[in-house]
Simulated scan of single mutants.
Amino acid sequence: MRVLYDPEPRSTDEIFSPEELATFRSSHHVTEWQGEDRTAFYARHLPETEILVSQQPMGADRLALAPRLRAIFNVETNFLPNIDYEECFRRGIHVLTPAAVFAAPVAEMALGMALSLARNIHGEHAAFLTGEEKWLFEGNRQSELLAGSTVGIIGFGDLGRALYRLLAPFGCRVQVFDPWQPNGHLRRQGVEPVGFDALMSQNRFIFVMATITTDNAGMIDARALGLMQPGAMLLLMSRAAAADFGALTADAASGRIRVATDVFPVEPLPKDDPVRKVPNMLFSPHRAGALTWALREIGTRVLEDLDLISRGLPPIACRRAERETVARMRSMPVSSPNPS
């Protein structure tokens, strides 16, 4: 198949192993963007393109230039609002993202951060370096077990399901809030569906794993945080826009709750940002999913679906955009050094 390849902000070395890159180039007629003017490049090559690997805008004008187009792979891994999805649906063009590759790495980091919050591993490590550690029971006065505890998961997509699998040995009661999934479906997964307020008030550990949509941006606000039990733990693992960061840091600073976050409203976080000094918070610089394995899995899944499409079969390794939900997606894109 004829592939127009423009993976920025990902790099080829990130998403393809040398062996899979060789397979990609030998199995398909690949035209690669090399830094030239994008408008002219796309105008020249879209008429023959069958597969597009790119996160660049594809409005009605560009789609009209691509009569043979069968699929768009966004290896940046978000469904961005820069595509005329309705036109793609009308024409039967698959819009795909291999975002699920980050589920297992994010879930593992979430579990690790939860254990650290519960037992203050990070805090006692820092205290040990300055000779201020507390030994034995004295260092565990605020500690509690994840095992047998109560866990709430906000969002039961790829991230939430991956986390749930890791929690199985801990014997937790797991509640889920996900308005995009019917209660019966959630029960069949083995979790208890609940409303948002019930989840916030009934659990010691709350994991925010939901993608950002027009419906849930800022849902973790002062009111929602006020529902949490004293000393309960909230882990923000998906996108910072899910939370009112001011309210979140204020509640952590007061000592009423414990917070861990892998994401921030501005990234990278400025060196002098006051959030760095907020107590009762565990920080990670948006690195939960950023593993070489996960990035290379992007290339693997793209190749799998390219093979299926070339044989007249539907793609299954990547997630397809759905008409009913894609217009609501509001995740921030990975920044690109050469926006077009």
Rank of each mutant, 00 (worst) to 15 (best):
R161G: 01
A317F: 01
G152E: 04
I72G: 04
D307E: 15
F137M: 12
G92T: 05
A222P: 01
A288W: 03
C172E: 07
R141S: 11
N120E: 15
A114H: 07
E267V: 06
W293Q: 13
T150E: 13
M219F: 15
M58V: 06
L199V: 11
G139C: 03
M109S: 14
A100V: 12
R141H: 13
L65I: 07
D273H: 15
V194Y: 08
A43T: 06
R223W: 06
I72M: 06
H122S: 13
A99V: 05
H185R: 15
V259C: 09
L4G: 02
C88Y: 02
K271I: 10
N216P: 02
C318Q: 00
V176E: 07
S335Y: 04
S26W: 02
V176L: 03
S11Y: 08
M281D: 06
R319P: 05
F196K: 05
V259L: 06
A290Q: 13
V3R: 03
L4H: 11
L52W: 00
A103R: 06
A240H: 10
A168Y: 03
E48T: 10
P337A: 11
E324I: 02
L117R: 06
E87M: 10
L65D: 11
L136V: 11
I316M: 12
F73K: 05
R328F: 10
S284C: 14
T49I: 04
P315I: 04
H94T: 08
F16C: 05
A321W: 03
A71Y: 02
D221T: 02
Q189W: 08
E20R: 15
A43S: 05
E76V: 05
V174E: 06
F245Y: 14
D305M: 01
G190W: 04
T97A: 15
